[in-house]
Design a protein around this nucleic acid. Structure first.
Length: 293
DNA sequence: AGACTGACCTGAACGC
DNA sequence: TGCGTTCAGGTCAGTC
């Protein structure tokens, strides 16, 4: 799912519920959930146990919990990195709650508070522990995040730089928007919504994109993701929830995504669906004419 | 170097 | 009822 607004909803929930808590036990229920942790599930568990959560951070769709140092003399900070993939959830729940069918990792703390569960039906997501390191574009991030561009909600995000990166690509506009090394946080839903708002077709070649058009689509992406965040994110079903298991409401505000055959809210033309990269693109054929081949 | 294709998973919804 | 097909919000290794 989860694109930037949904991941940010989860980050905020974690900031509310696990900060300054010390990990007591870690239970890896499915090895695939920690496959990005190169040294294995036992090492994952060992690196986490006894550590205290100091901060909850995010870049694009990546989320991490910064941990205190393993020993006083150790200056390298570690982070518990989470990517939700297509179906991952971070749930903060009382230990008495029954295990979810797709519970992959359980983290208990050395207090009376609720436990943290990583639940993931499709197992595209995962958890891992990494030292914080300098990112390509600045900032301290876990190693696997180093190549990810800043997202539009990052205070240090530069729209100028992002537009330049978009225009430097030699591909179709939507592909570039989904490329997390150009600008991060945008997925299939918000790409389609942003393109509709900017009245641009995703098949337009980036080499012909004007600076104004680049700004228009990025501004639209920022606005739509900000609006979605204010409504708790987008969720069509129980797969996409905050740390308390609740869904957001932004699905009611979508203009094109999933709106096949419904009237465009701007011009009334039926929205169309097209196959794109093994999934779908939704456009208004009138507001967003296809580029000439 | 940069662009593009499949592969990685489970489950729900649909058509026959 | 059941079986096959298609679809789902993401990423990355491999290939050209």
């Amino acid at each position: 799912m989860p694109e930037l607004p949904e991941v940010e909803v989860v980050r905020r929930g974690l900031a509310d519920h696990v900060l300054d808590r010390r990990v007591a036990t870690v239970e890896v229920r499915h090895p695939r959930a920690v496959r990005r942790h190169a040294t294995g599930a036992d090492d994952f568990t060992a690196r986490l146990t006894g550590r205290t959560v100091r901060a909850a951070a995010r870049r694009g769709k990546y989320l991490w919990l910064e941990l205190d140092s393993a020993d006083p003399g150790d200056s390298a900070e570690d982070a518990l990195l989470a990517h939700l993939g297509m179906s991952g959830q971070m749930l903060v729940e009382d230990a008495a709650q029954p295990d979810e069918k797709h519970l992959r990792v359980r983290i208990r703390f050395d207090d009376d508070g609720p436990e943290l569960r990583f639940v993931d039906q499709r197992t595209f997501g995962g958890l891992s522990v990494h030292p914080l390191a300098p990112a390509t574009g600045g900032g301290l991030v876990p190693e696997p995040v180093a190549h990810i561009a800043r997202d539009p909600m990052d205070p240090a995000f530069s729209a100028e730089d992002a537009v330049a990166a978009l225009r430097r690509r030699r591909t179709e506009l939507k592909r570039a928007l989904l490329d997390q090394t150009v600008v991060s946080g945008i997925g299939n839903i918000y790409a389609d919504e942003a393109l509709w708002r900017a009245k641009l077709h995703g098949l337009r070649p980036t080499e012909k994109l004007t600076r104004a058009q680049g700004h228009a689509v990025l501004d639209a992406a920022t606005t739509v993701m900000t609006e979605a965040l204010a409504q708790g994110g987008t969720s069509f079903d129980a797969l996409y929830v905050n740390v308390n298991g609740a869904s957001g409401y932004f699905d009611r505000s979508l203009d094109v995504y999933g709106q096949t055959d419904r009237a465009c809210t701007r011009c009334g033309t039926p929205i169309r669906r097209d196959a794109f990269m093994n999934r779908s693109s939704f456009t208004c054929p009138r507001c967003q004419p296809r580029p000439r081949r």
